[in-house]
Structure formats: C-alpha cells, structure tokens
C-alpha cells in the first residue's frame, strides 16, 4: 500500500492571466476563454477556464503528491464552467489501490457548490527502493 495522504484537498484561484497563458500554451484562443467583452454577451456572462487548465491543476497536485508516478489513463468531465477569481476546491480520493497501481477520483468544486471537473485517473507509482 502507498503511504500518501488520501483524500487530499487543495484550494486555488485562477486569474484571467492564467486563462491567457493557457491559451498561448495550447493555441486555444477561443474568445469564451480570453475575451471578456465577447464573453459578457454569452450565456456564461464572463470568461471561463479552459477545461484543460483545470486538468493542469489536477495533474500538478498528483505530481506533488506522488512524484514520479506515471499517468496511464485519464477520464474528464466538465459539468459546469469555472470562472476567474473564484476560490475553487480540488479533492482527490482513492477509488482502488492494487500493488503500485492507484485509481483516483478527482473533483473541482466552485464556491456555489457546482462541479467544474470530475475525473478518474490511473497512476502507476514508482517502485519503492529496497534497502
């Protein structure tokens, strides 16, 4: 069994600058992510995060919690949009652990309780060094 602390939780806030930077990195300059004036006229009312920027935050927490683990499989759903300057909560829970294989459930929630991301992923942890 692994000794990492599960469930683990992290709170974070994304900014419009973060949306802009992920747009540059991905090439996805869709106005719903980067153009506040355009987005004000949509049903969302303002810019929303790229789903894969949310996945980036998840992946970063996984890398910090299980350094060197290999990500084999990732399922993602984006039920509700995530906005800039709101405190988001990321929760990571264990679904299954067999040997060095770990299946995790990840959830990102908005302050109003709506879910922005649910995911399931499968990691292989690095072999423990035997002394």
């Amino acid at each position: 069994m692994n000794d990492a602390s599960i469930p683990c939780e992290q709170h974070f806030i994304l900014s419009q600058e973060d949306f802009d930077q992920f747009a540059r990195l991905s090439g996805d300059h869709n106005p719903i992510h980067v153009d506040p004036e355009f987005s004000a006229r949509t049903s969302f009312g303002r810019t929303v995060s790229h789903g894969m920027l949310l996945f980036s935050v998840v992946r970063s927490l996984l890398a910090q919690t299980w350094p060197g683990a290999v990500l084999h499989r990732q399922n993602l759903m984006f039920p509700s949009p995530a906005y800039a300057d709101e405190l988001l909560a990321l929760m990571v829970e264990q679904q299954k652990a067999e040997g060095n294989r770990l299946v995790l459930k990840t959830t990102i929630t908005r302050p109003d309780g709506e879910t922005c991301l649910t995911g399931e992923c499968e990691l292989t942890l690095p072999e423990k060094e035997t002394s």
Binding site: F22, L25, G27, H50, R59, L71, Q74
Partner: peptide, 10 residues
C-alpha cells in the same frame, strides 16, 4: 499530459 490534452481542446 495536460499540454497534449490542450491540443485536443484547441
């Protein structure tokens, strides 16, 4: 991996 996923999103 999220940079690969970002290309799908793009």
């Amino acid at each position: 991996e999220p940079l690969i996923a970002g290309l799908f999103s793009c």
